[in-house]
């Protein structure tokens, strides 16, 4: 503290301090502008694009964003996130169709149910690191898949079909396209904000430190298992929120949503868009869902197209679309 006493050095210091904060602020401002444009676009979108399509994109975008909380910011690759997405869809579909619950309450039930599953899976999985962590999550999600396959309430291969959309809070008829659209948009924004808040919180700061160097975080006195478990449960809950909402939008909950392929798809969306970036996973999800939608009616098998794009992404722009864009802006 005493080593730097001459004024020249002191000026350099304070300039550096300011520069550090200025750089962070200008990037944050660009993010804010993009967010405002995106929200304005989403508010206007149903007048130009088929609403069910955008709602599907929003559900997957939220799913990928929740997944990215874990992969991008805590450095944990879960290969079983379909269990939370699809599991929540089953809970919500059942609550609405069989118990006649109000849709918002049913969606919250799905999210909480997914969070509880996340607590159990996470509790076991965080004891292992790297590829073993991924394997444990995969194994446990396969067990959950099997339970959903066998449990009578899911109707096995048929799934829960014809889920009624119902009236939001008994007031708003969700069968009208614009009503359900803005309801889904609101859920998406709340979920997206939650992830943004967590990432840019003191807790998120520690999570990133754990991702960067777990042993060092331990040696600074952080009980890293608790932090990881917390991130896992939050990620599972928001993934569940996305799955529940999808069940209301598409009025169906099926085995596709809990199968391991779905876990793979969310990894792909996240990497394509840019893991560890706020907007990346949503962009990746939009891209993948659009391609699936576009090529669904053509002769070209969509998995091949998505596969090729994924390989190109890994080879040419490893940071993902948004990740590369941020790098470009920083220069």
């Amino acid at each position: 503290m005493s080593s730097l006493t001459d004024t020249g050095a002191a000026q350099v210091e304070s300039r550096e301090r300011q520069k550090a904060h200025a750089r962070q602020r200008s990037l944050a401002r660009i993010g804010l502008i993009i967010a405002v444009i995106a929200v304005a676009g989403l508010i206007a979108a149903p007048f130009f694009v088929y609403p069910v399509f955008i709602m599907t994109v929003l559900c997957f975008a939220l799913f990928a964003t929740a997944f990215n909380l874990l992969l991008g910011y805590a450095g944990l690759l879960s290969f079983g996130h379909a269990a939370f997405f699809g599991g929540a869809a089953y809970f919500t579909a059942h609550a609405v169709k069989v118990w006649g619950w109000e849709p918002l309450l049913a969606i919250l039930l799905g999210a909480v149910g997914a969070g509880l599953m996340g607590l159990v899976v996470g509790f076991v999985a965080i004891r292992r690191q790297g590829i073993y962590f991924a394997m444990v999550t995969l194994a446990l999600s396969q067990m959950i898949y099997f339970i959903f396959l066998q449990a009578p309430f899911t109707h096995g291969e048929d799934g829960i079909q014809g889920v009624p959309r119902g009236d939001l809070l008994g007031l708003v008829d969700l069968n009208r396209p614009l009503n359900i659209y803005y309801f889904v948009l609101l859920i998406f924004l709340v979920g997206f904000y939650a992830v943004w808040r967590i990432v840019h919180s003191p807790y998120g700061h520690v999570l990133q430190a754990i991702r960067e160097n777990e042993n060092r975080a331990i040696s600074l006195g952080y009980r890293v298992e608790r932090y990881k478990l917390g991130a896992f449960v939050m990620s599972a809950t928001i993934a569940g929120l996305a799955g529940s909402t999808k069940a209301i939008v598409l009025q169906i909950a099926t085995l596709t949503d809990v199968a391991w392929q779905m876990s793979g798809e969310v990894v792909l969306m996240t990497l394509l868009g840019g893991m560890g970036t706020i907007f990346g996973p949503a962009v990746g999800a939009a891209l993948v869902v659009t391609m699936q939608n576009y090529f669904a009616t053509s002769d070209v098998p969509v998995t091949v197209i998505v596969g090729v794009i994924f390989v190109l992404c890994v080879l040419l722009f490893r940071r993902g679309i948004v990740g590369e864009a941020i790098r470009f802006l920083k220069r």
Binding site: I198, S201, P202, Y203, H205, V206, G230
Partner: peptide
């Protein structure tokens, strides 16, 4: 200040 996930990191 490690566990507050609902607050802004401006707290730091």
């Amino acid at each position: 200040l490690g566990t507050q996930f609902w607050r802004s990191n401006r707290l730091l």
